[in-house]
């Protein structure tokens, strides 16, 4: 769905067609000189990202093929073990359990975060007295120091003195008087989902609000003339126009939520009895619990491949062709 004009602009000013399917070195130099402006724009961010991170990433790959027990490395160079670490991880029942748990966890977190974020963004896009206060208040969950807020949530969920049980039982739900939220597998899992959603919805809301603000008002006015109602405008105009932004946010949230660690560690430490051990916790346990960096790196690589696959698939499906 590209406008003819954009297509024309592409061919005229903005882009250079790819050369032969197998570019020679000369072709490559040619490409680079012809696109120098593009590379000049992009270079700082590429350099910034890779100057620092490239070496660690390559090392992670290398370590994933070694038996790298941290306590052994001062004495001997870690031996190369081929794919042994990968086989160990893939064969570990705990990994398979954690993987499924993490998939469900990620899906739940992303879906709820996006819904709440969109809801709040739409709310903040309205004009009403006091809007400014809400706009600032919404940021609070995001800016509270994470160490403090996870502890605060643990207080809230506390079975004996938690405000949550206190409120539930004072509105008549007596069975919640000392409900152990964090001592049961299901409730503990969802309790952490709530905390993650709570901490991440402000970012989504702020970004989507910024996106909503860039939609020209005329579009809505035209729709109103056609008799569109409030939700029709949201579904038929706002969401389609924010499609790219939504796609980016979903991708990035998926990447983040797939490796959640802090909140789960503070609230449940993967318990009760390992029932909330998502991959973030499992990786930490391999890395700094068991000090097996080889296994941890192999795990990180597996996670990387999975997330990358999902990301590419997602971008292919949902992003407009020309942007990717």
């Amino acid at each position: 769905m590209r406008s003819p004009l954009a297509e024309k602009a592409d061919s005229m000013h903005w882009s250079v067609g790819r050369g032969s399917p197998r570019p020679t070195l000369r072709q490559l130099c040619h490409d680079i000189t012809r696109n120098w402006l593009a590379y000049a724009f992009v270079l700082p961010s590429m350099a910034g990202v890779f100057a620092i991170i490239l070496v660690p990433l390559v090392q992670t790959v290398a370590v994933s093929f070694k038996r790298y027990y941290i306590l052994d490395i001062l004495r001997e160079a870690p031996p190369f073990v081929g794919f042994a670490n990968y086989l160990t991880i893939l064969g570990d029942p705990q990994f398979r359990f954690s993987l499924w748990l993490t998939v469900i966890f990620t899906f739940a977190c992303v879906a709820l975060t996006m819904l709440v974020g969109l809801f709040v963004a739409i709310l903040l896009d309205q004009d009403f007295p006091g809007r400014g206060i809400v706009a600032v208040a919404v940021l609070v969950p995001w800016v509270i120091p994470r160490i403090a807020s996870s502890i605060l949530w643990k207080w809230i969920y506390d079975d004996q003195f938690g405000i949550l049980n206190h409120m539930l039982s004072s509105i008549g739900l007596r069975s919640f008087a000392s409900f152990p939220w964090l001592a049961r597998a299901g409730p503990a899992f969802w309790a952490v989902v709530v905390v993650v959603v709570w901490q991440s919805f402000p970012f989504i809301a702020v970004t989507l609000l910024a996106g909503l603000r860039t939609i020209p008002r005329e579009v809505y006015e035209a729709a109103e003339i056609d008799g569109a109602g409030f939700w029709q405008k949201v579904v038929l105009i706002s969401i389609p126009m924010l499609r790219n932004l939504l796609a980016i946010l979903i991708v990035i949230s998926t990447i983040w939520d797939f490796k959640v660690f802090d909140q789960m560690y503070v609230l449940t430490e993967g318990g009760p009895a390992g029932s909330t051990m998502i991959l973030g916790i499992y990786t930490w346990m391999m890395a700094f619990g068991r000090l097996q960096m080889g296994l941890a790196s192999a795990l990180a690589m597996i996670m990387f491949v999975l997330v990358m696959a999902v990301t590419v698939l997602y971008l292919r499906l949902f992003m407009r062709e020309e942007t990717m």
Binding site: D10, S15, F41, S45, A300, M303
Partner: peptide
């Protein structure tokens, strides 16, 4: 640059930038 120009290596570069986020920091 990524939005306005089409140049060889653009899509892989975009994905590579994103991939920085995909590694757990403990590793």
């Amino acid at each position: 640059g990524f939005s306005r120009f089409r140049f060889p290596g653009r899509s892989p570069a975009l994905l590579m930038i994103l991939s920085v986020q995909m590694f757990p920091s403990v590793v």
